[in-house]
């Protein structure tokens, strides 16, 4: 199923689009060469959000990133939501489409969070079925993103990296490697982040995410990192990113900043930092 033409983002740096940055993006975007939007925010009938998106899509390749399909949910995918995703992909013709290895809907109630999954054969079969259904609906291959996790399931039988590699093999989907998620989840699982990268099927990766997180501690005093997207990327994540693209080669890289959103100049400075790491590898 996977066709290279389904992943058309340039191997430069993009940012998560926020409406307050519209003017700077159309007048002086700096080093930012593509944009990512959350699919669910562009499913209204009209008005400013769609008008801005139409305008931006004439100037930037757009990555559509779904945050609500519940690919890991026990129930079949919501056909209404599948139709909305198809409609968005049909009119926007984005450079790529991605979603998460997570669930977010239960018995029709949407929980607005990316909830974790046990890595078992049953989960694997279900996630692959859902990815097949999605890819058939939108008529293209998607990318699946590795999660931030805060806990583990006693019933898990597989490593997350093997689980994702097997999904990519069975469904032909690409993978979106969120390096901040790797750092957050590995820290929370008391594993080595670089081990995760070394076991990750990097050939299937067509996009990388970078973002900020928050640091807390659990009731035993162990580090507990929270994937908050509300701050700058921390140095260990920059270092992990450097190590990742040294192994994978250049990949389209996104700065995610979804809360506590800074002025555009600050966001662009983060993008420049990524570009400074990415460009020597791309050269």
């Amino acid at each position: 199923m996977s066709r290279i033409s389904d992943f058309r983002l340039p191997a430069g740096v993009g940012v998560g689009y926020k409406a307050q940055h519209f003017n700077e993006l159309v007048s002086a975007p700096g080093c930012v060469s593509w944009l990512e939007i959350h699919a669910e925010n562009y499913m209204g009938d009209g008005g400013r959000p769609l008008a801005q998106l139409r305008h931006l899509s004439e100037r930037f390749p757009i990555s559509v990133h779904g945050v609500g399909l519940s690919i890991g949910g026990e129930a079949p995918l919501d056909p209404d939501h599948l139709a909305r995703l198809r409609h968005l992909c049909d009119w926007l013709q984005p450079a790529s489409f991605s979603e998460h290895l997570a669930w977010s809907t239960h018995e029709g109630a949407f929980l607005n969070d990316l909830l974790p999954l046990p890595y078992t054969e049953a989960t694997l079969t279900r996630v692959c079925d859902h990815i097949d259904a999605l890819q058939a609906t939108i008529g293209r291959a998607m990318m699946l993103e590795n999660p931030s996790t805060y806990l583990a399931f006693a019933e898990s039988e597989m490593e997350e990296t093997d689980f994702l590699a097997e999904i990519a093999r069975r469904t032909g989907c690409g993978l979106l490697l969120d390096v901040n998620n790797v750092y957050v989840a590995s820290t929370n699982q008391q594993r080595e982040p670089l081990d995760y990268i070394e076991h990750f099927p990097l050939a299937a990766v067509h996009e990388i995410h970078l973002g900020g997180h928050d640091e807390q501690a659990d009731e035993h005093g162990d580090r507990l990192l929270i994937d908050s997207h509300d701050a700058e990327v921390v140095d260990p994540v920059w270092q992990l990113y450097r190590e990742t693209i040294r192994r994978s080669g250049p990949r389209p890289t996104l700065i995610e900043w979804d809360a506590n959103i800074p002025p555009y100049a600050e966001l662009e400075a983060e993008a420049s930092r990524a570009a400074a790491i990415l460009e020597p590898v791309a050269a």
Binding site: N112, Y150, F153, Q189, Q190, D222, L224
Partner: peptide
């Protein structure tokens, strides 16, 4: 039960992160 921390202990506060995310974000 069955949700654990890296040392195999009950997830406790780690589960509360998800609880908090759902109610706070909504």
């Amino acid at each position: 039960e069955g949700l654990i921390d890296p040392k195999g202990r009950p997830a406790g506060k780690r589960f509360d992160v998800y609880r908090n995310n759902v109610v706070v974000s909504l």
